[in-house]
Design a protein around this nucleic acid. Structure first.
Lengths: 253, 253
DNA sequence: GAAATAGTGTCTTTAAGACAGTATGTG
DNA sequence: CACATACTGTCTTAAAGACACTATTTC
């Protein structure tokens, strides 16, 4: 990066004087929360982490894990903190999704939500047993395929009724699924939902579950191996049928 | 907001310890601005709208057009308002880009920037003549191809020196170019930079300028016509050489 | 007619899909 | 052995790229 095109680190004396006189409370401001769509794969289903609200509005309904942005932390740090607080997950794949700012999205007051989505291997957070009354990994059913929008449905158990979500969290969830589906086509992020080593068929099942449609096995193998980012670990998974080679994902180019 | 509930500006050592332990700023609010990367195409160059800052910080430097979010408007409305205020442009293609929230991105205080990008046909805003001292359509030069990141350089004239931008606006600009390049591959948004009717070669030149690389003419024509969203207007552009059919973009599926 | 751009037809190349056939484990 | 899954090879199909050729204008 060219330093010439970047702002100077130290303000001039003139600017320092201005900064001291500045009243940061001069204007009214919205509150800012960070909400996280955590996606994980369990039992061949896409699942998402929900927490039950203990206070109005939407008391006792389910919502995405979230919290207010602290003044000293970046947005990325806030998202990571919230995931660690609510689900004890550290260092997952985490990416900013969209910022939701409808003036009426929270009935109390003006609150922006900077939404993130996280992909995680569920083995990493089965430590505190789920589900409970407070927090649950809910099943996600997305009745549409491809990248177009559509309502995602969320259930506590595969056969129970769809849950209504608090605020505009259903919309946030929709966008998270839409985003990951679109991204899966050109970025091999499916492995983020798997343990460090996995077979090609496991990776394909991940893609199929996320995309909601079957994939051609031959071309999937070819495409994945052609990326050059899958390295055989040398080990073998013996399950049923012929043993399969285990691969590891190479993050560096 | 009641100022009494806020901590004093300069806490005593004892209070500092309290503040650190209990993080009272956790419920303080950041300011929120909306900044817009306006992209237009003039003279076969990608250009972006910049305004000169009249106040510190970064006084007299160029910045993206932006402003504080009003409490009654949505983020989309704020972006549209800012574009109309700064450049008198109404109803352009406008899409949220990313939210920038580094705690130190503004030296005054904590300010989030919800960034948008807009695509517009420059014929629509040559009404107030540009450039001036206050506002300019600056040339964009992006020395990298494809969708990977890289520093975008901005100049007032094609041959002048690159301008430093205020705050983290260079980073925002980088991401806007990255986003539109990625999107061009699967969404035919090039026509947003053109007048309502255009020839296929004009559309191809737009794609080439944005992507920074030449495209195959035959396959570009085929791909565009195969989308089924280009409708011949029946009219003809006579310029030099054989006249070309003019097309209009069909927004509905 | 020369130059320039528009548009068509077709061959080659490449990637995806389909599918047969072989390999190697389990019971 | 049957069965299940892993992997290879090859044929077909569809899209992209390359390129030759014709068409229609301006000069």
């Amino acid at each position: 990066m060219n330093p010439q095109t970047r702002p100077p680190a130290i303000p001039s004396p003139e600017e320092s004087a201005f900064l001291q006189a500045y009243d940061p409370q001069a204007f009214d401001r919205p509150s800012v929360t960070v909400d996280v769509v955590l996606l994980a794969l369990r039992e061949e289903r896409l699942q998402t982490l929900l927490v039950r609200r203990r206070e109005p509005p939407f008391k006792d309904q389910w919502a995405l894990p979230g919290g207010f942005l602290h003044m000293h932390e970046s947005l990325d740090e806030a998202a990571a903190r919230i995931l660690e607080e609510k689900a004890r997950i550290r260092g997952p794949y985490l990416e900013q999704l969209y910022t939701f700012g409808d003036p009426k999205r929270d009935p109390r007051m003006r609150i922006l939500s900077v939404a993130y989505y996280a992909l995680v291997n569920p083995a990493r957070f089965l430590d505190p047993p789920l589900p409970s009354d407070e927090i649950a990994l809910a099943c996600l059913r997305v009745p549409w395929i491809g990248e177009q929008g559509g309502p995602a449905e969320v259930r506590l158990f595969p056969e129970s009724q769809p849950l209504p979500l608090a605020f505009d969290h259903a919309e946030i969830l929709d966008m998270a699924v839409q985003r990951i589906r679109g991204k899966l086509d050109y970025a091999p992020i499916g492995f983020e939902l798997l343990p460090p080593s996995f077979t090609l068929l496991e990776l394909q099942k991940v893609h199929e579950t996320v995309l909601g449609r079957p994939l051609n096995k031959d071309s999937f193998r070819r495409r994945m191996l052609a990326t050059g980012r899958l390295e055989p670990t040398g080990k073998i998974r013996q399950d049923v049928g012929r043993p399969a080679a285990l691969y590891r994902y190479l993050r560096e180019a």
